[in-house]
Structure formats: C-alpha cells, structure tokens
C-alpha cells in the first residue's frame, strides 16, 4: 500500500475514533454554551421555543443596572465563596498538619473526617434544616440546656448566609484536608530539619518553610474549591427555598438565575445572568492561575 494512502487512511480512522467524543462535546458543552449566549440576546419568555425578538445587549444592561437583585446576588456569591473557602483552607491546613505524622487510630480519624463528603448537598441541606429548625430542631434544644436562648439560624435574614457558610465548611473542609495532606506528603523534610537546627520555632517553620513550599498545592486547592463554592446551588435552595429566602438574604447568582428560569420563565434575562456569571468565574480562575504561575519557582 502506498505511504500516502496509508497516511490518509490513518487520518480517517483517527477522526472516526474521535467522532463520538467530538459529537458529545459539541452536543453537551458547545451547543448549550452558544445557545445560552444566543438566548441572552433575546426576549425569550414563557417557552424557549416560543416567538422571540432580538434585543442585542439589553438583557445585559438590565442585569448590570439591577441593584435590587443582581448586584446583591453578586456580592453574596463573593462573600459566600471567600468566607467558605478561607475557613476551609485554614481548618483544612490545620487538620492536615495534625494528620501529617502517623498516630494510633489515624485511619479511623481519616475515615470519620471523610463522612460529610459522602453526602449529597441536598441531603446535607435537609439534615441541617432539621437540626437548625428554630422551634423543633435539636440545636436550640441543646443551646437551651446551657441557658442560651433559641436562635433563628436559617430563619433569620442576618444569620442565614453565615449559617450556610458554616454548613459548607462542615461539608467541604475534609476535601481541603485531603488535598493539602497529599501535598504535605510530597514535601522534602530537609528544609524543615535545617530550620530546626537553625533554631526556628514551630510557627516560624510552618510560616516560612512549610507554607511557601506548599503554596502551589494551596493555590490549586483554592482554585478547585473556589469554582465549586461559586457554583453552590443545591445547599442554598434546599435550605432557603426559591429566591434564597424571603428577603433574598441567601440569593447567590446561581439561585437568582435558577429563579429567573424556573420561577419567572424569563429565559433571555436568565441566560444573560448566566453568561455574566461564567465571565466572572473565568476571570477569577485566570487571576488565580496567574498568581499560581508567579509563585512557581
């Protein structure tokens, strides 16, 4: 067989083998993305396939000038993500440092730590909703035993977002611990030993030796958890219902976009919010990746 024909045949075979994956990517990723971008420029309402008119960037300007729902949702998304991820990083790092050296019963401790990761966010939401119910929940019952008055928790406008952050921390700190523990296990011991001989205290060794060496892993963990935390939906919806609560006190961008789609059927505006949300996420990931590249030796 001539070499040119063989090459041609191999090229065709390559495309034939790739085609299912390509089709899947186009159908499941590219098409929804482009269709959402297209919908965001229309006045689609009621049904996606109903008659719609081209609006250009009107939906975007409507969303960006909405100080009642959109910008507060952006702020809550940022507050929720930063608070949850920072707490998870601090606690995750502390637990990872504790679990770094072998000790008796370590396997049990590690297994127990992983339990929250196994539950789905909706189940976690319902579980905490029952625990924190202001009237019949066990949390207020326990607080009452030590003389603390009942708290509204998720029933309060002011306490809802902090409570949701704590639930997220409860569920996802083990994930951070796992990632950081994996990073710690790959660090060389010599720099720490050298610092010890030079008389550095435990805190100095941690701050000036361990953390800088662990920084690439910390940044990667931050990127992974931040993207996940930005997208949090099920936990908030399961505990606060539509609109993130009666005063929209826990409404993040995801919850807002869901409400526009399924409660209001305003598909054009919802699509524009989702496009803006995607742009925000991409910008954050780019910023974190740049920071990570700077920290690389």
């Amino acid at each position: 067989m001539p070499a040119a024909t063989l090459q041609q045949e191999q090229r065709r075979l390559k495309w034939a083998m790739l085609s299912p994956a390509l089709f899947f990517i186009i159908a499941m990723i590219a098409f929804p993305l482009f269709y959402t971008a297209y919908l965001s420029t229309t006045d689609a309402f009621g049904a996606v396939n109903a008659h719609r008119s081209f609006l250009g960037l009107t939906n975007f300007s409507d969303a960006l000038s909405d100080t009642r729902r959109f910008w507060p949702a952006v702020a809550r998304t940022a507050v929720f993500t930063v608070a949850a991820v920072v707490l998870e990083l601090c606690l995750g790092l502390a637990v990872a440092m504790l679990l770094r050296r072998p000790f008796g019963g370590m396997r049990w401790v590690r297994t127990i730590l992983m339990v929250p990761l196994l539950a789905t966010p909706v189940a976690v939401g319902v579980l905490w909703l029952l625990i924190l119910d202001p009237t019949v929940g066990i949390a207020n019952h326990l607080l009452g035993l030590v003389g603390i008055p009942p708290q509204p928790f998720l029933g309060s406008v002011a306490e809802s977002l902090p409570t949701l952050v704590l639930i997220d921390v409860w569920q996802w700190t083990p994930m951070m611990t796992l990632l950081l523990l994996a990073g710690l296990s790959t660090l060389p011991e010599e720099p720490e030993e050298a610092a010890l001989i030079d008389g550095a205290s435990g805190w100095q060794r941690f701050r000036l030796v361990t953390v800088p060496m662990l920084m690439p892993v910390i940044i990667t963990s931050l990127v992974l958890r931040s993207v996940d935390a930005l997208k949090t939906f099920d936990l908030i919806y399961a505990t606060k219902g539509p609109g993130g609560g009666s005063s929209n006190e826990a409404e993040t961008l995801n919850v807002y976009a869901y409400g526009l789609t399924f409660d209001y059927q305003e598909y054009g505006l919802a699509a524009s919010v989702l496009v803006l949300f995607t742009v925000f996420i991409v910008l954050i990931v780019i910023a974190l990746r740049r920071r990570s590249a700077k920290d690389q030796p």
Binding site: D133, P134, T135, V136, P150, Q151, P152, F153, L154, G155, S156, V157, S160, K240, G241, G245, S246, S247
Partner: peptide, 16 residues
Amino acid sequence: GPIGATNMTLEQVTPI
C-alpha cells in the same frame, strides 16, 4: 409566632 417565621412553609407549620 415562632422565631424564624419568614422561612416557614407548610413543611414547618405542620410539625410545629
């Protein structure tokens, strides 16, 4: 009413 009333639906009213 109980505290946290603005988070209450039928699911909270019935058990209370």
